[in-house]
Design a protein around this nucleic acid. Structure first.
Lengths: 328, 328
DNA sequence: ATGACGATTGAAAACGTTTACACAAAAATT
DNA sequence: AATTTTTGTGTAAACGTTTTCAATCGTCAT
């Protein structure tokens, strides 16, 4: 079987306590420290983290529950979270919920069983509202989607503001009929929709938006249909990368071009948005910072349970590209 | 503090052993089973996985060590691995090495301390060769990059074969001067290079390849320089998605088009490859299957330690798009 | 009635750590 | 020199489970 701290102790001729102390930089004489370190080398000892966690009651583990790691937004956030975690000597347990409340519940329970130190969570609307039902005994930081205010720490984008940036830009470029396409499963879509509506009104324009499933295929079908209508919009704004993908595909399939046939702008500065057609005008989310802030927020909460509930709102950056060039 | 099995036992008026048996579907009377289940409900008990793992000596944990989760290839593979793992009641520990051997070593040690049940690993060339130095006491399945044959189970792409598909296609389209660009950190790049060279020879063509760091910027710089040389190649083949990205950027920056100025083909069917210019001809890797196979392979190995070492070689699919249209 | 047997149960010993406590020896203070 | 303090160490008790072992209680065949 695996070599334990006892074997090291025997090999070094000291007690297990001394070995433990040596490993945790406790008070030991220079002499024994060397003896123990030699013994560790000789035996190839590796501490057993399960035992350590059990005894110390510190799991040094943080949970990360997102909808789908394949979504580039969450990929980037995860990477930031993991970097911060490993840097702080913690592990990460990652779970994909696919926006399915049942799986969210399942994984929340798992987090309890793992006795995670803290949780970073991007919940669906459903679970978000019922989050206190679970009375979790570790702090939670919500990302991307915030729940009812004042209940949990959160790091989110200024969604309404970002939408406004896009509308302002489109309006300045001379577009009037701007269609909106928003995801219907998260609070994010709703907020971006609200920002869109407000900005449209501010410019004296008539909002015209729909909510659809946040998948490329849905957007593609929707846009394909839209393009055949008598008075098609001049521009379209969409609320995430998947929808943006659908729109791009629809235009391509129809052999139409941006911005001539339809101007396009949306959320998520994915790799490809700079490469397709004249380049897509998008909101770049500070993905790395979202992950990092969530972690520091979590750590601060762990240090001081009594901190007031905070919500960090980060701004998106509008990257202007050819897909919204002046209507000509 | 957290509620333990003792509390449940007290609440149900039975011994802890009985509670444990109830939870693991052991032999208990219908009567006590109900009593225990009620007690679990009432107390809100959740088993402590650290304790369970320590006592049972089964961590139900698999390690997944890849270079960077942000690489879409690994994102997809990870998702497949995680699905399989959670389906089998196991959790996953994910680590990003950034192709850095020091971090690989660090994480391999971590895996030992976690006492993982098994490991799925995409190693750099360096670590790959020195893998037995670590004498890990759990089975390892290599993915993407195979080590020296016969030492570890592995799931890889038929890299040489896939390269050949690309060259055959380009040759058939009339291209003669086909430049090759390959990543220099993994065995994958080397294998794809070998396939390229062999295929070129088979067609009576002169190979002309270089190895570079597998980052977009490197490829972009290289291609930018290449484009100014007196006799520039007619086509270029590159060994992964990052390089493909660099090539695309370089052409775009120079205002050149595919395939007119340069035909392009490469590995990894990332989202954007269908959308840029006339579409990029690429090798699609069976990403989902790579992850899934790795897991079943690992499970089979766990059941039978004495199984012969196996290497699953999957074929890539060549997706032909406009970037390699007939030279004309 | 007797013994054997199956079904349930509890007591207690692990699993590999950390840590409270006690204690000796050495060093520092009076 | 007598005391206090510091320093280093070992013993043993946790942490929350699972699992071995033995014990109890019916039931059933003899």
């Amino acid at each position: 079987m695996s070599v334990s701290i006892k074997d090291v102790a025997r090999h070094a001729g000291v007690s297990v306590a001394t070995v433990s102390r040596t490993l945790s930089n406790g008070p030991v004489s220079e002499e024994t420290r060397r003896r123990v370190e030699d013994a560790v080398q000789a035996t190839g000892y590796r501490p057993n983290l399960s035992a350590r966690r059990l005894r110390s009651q510190h799991t040094q583990t943080i949970g990360l529950v997102v909808s789908d790691i394949r979504n580039p937004f969450f990929t980037a956030v995860s990477r930031a979270v993991e970097d911060a975690a490993y840097h702080a000597g913690m592990r990460v347990i990652l779970c994909n919920t696919d926006e399915n409340p049942d799986r969210e519940e399942l994984y929340l329970r798992l987090m309890q069983e793992e006795r995670v130190t803290g949780l970073i969570f991007a919940p669906t609307r459903t679970t978000c509202e019922a989050l206190d039902r679970f009375d979790l005994d570790f702090p939670v930081v919500l990302i991307d989607r915030a729940g009812p205010p004042g209940l949990h720490d959160a790091v989110v984008l200024d969604n309404a503001g970002a939408s406004a940036l896009l509308i302002d830009h489109l309006a300045a470029q001379g577009y009037r009929k701007i269609h909106g396409l928003f995801g219907n499963t998260s609070t994010t879509g709703a907020e971006r929709h609200d920002g869109y509506t407000a900005a449209m009104h501010r410019h004296g324009l008539q909002p015209d938006a729909v909510f659809i499933a946040p998948q490329a295929a849905a957007a593609e079908a929707h846009i394909a249909a839209l393009l055949t209508t008598p008075d098609r919009p001049e521009a379209v704004v969409v609320s995430n990368g998947q929808l943006l993908l659908g729109v791009t595909r629809a235009l391509r399939a129809a052999g139409l071009s941006m911005p001539g046939d339809l101007a396009v702008a949306g959320f998520d500065n994915e790799t490809w948005t700079e490469l397709v057609g004249p380049g897509l005008t998008v909101i770049e989310q500070p993905v790395q910072e979202i992950g990092a802030s969530a972690m520091t927020m979590l750590f601060e909460r762990l240090e001081r349970q009594d901190l007031p509930v905070r919500k960090i709102v980060l701004s998106g950056r509008c990257i202007i590209r050819g897909s919204t060039a002046t209507r000509g």
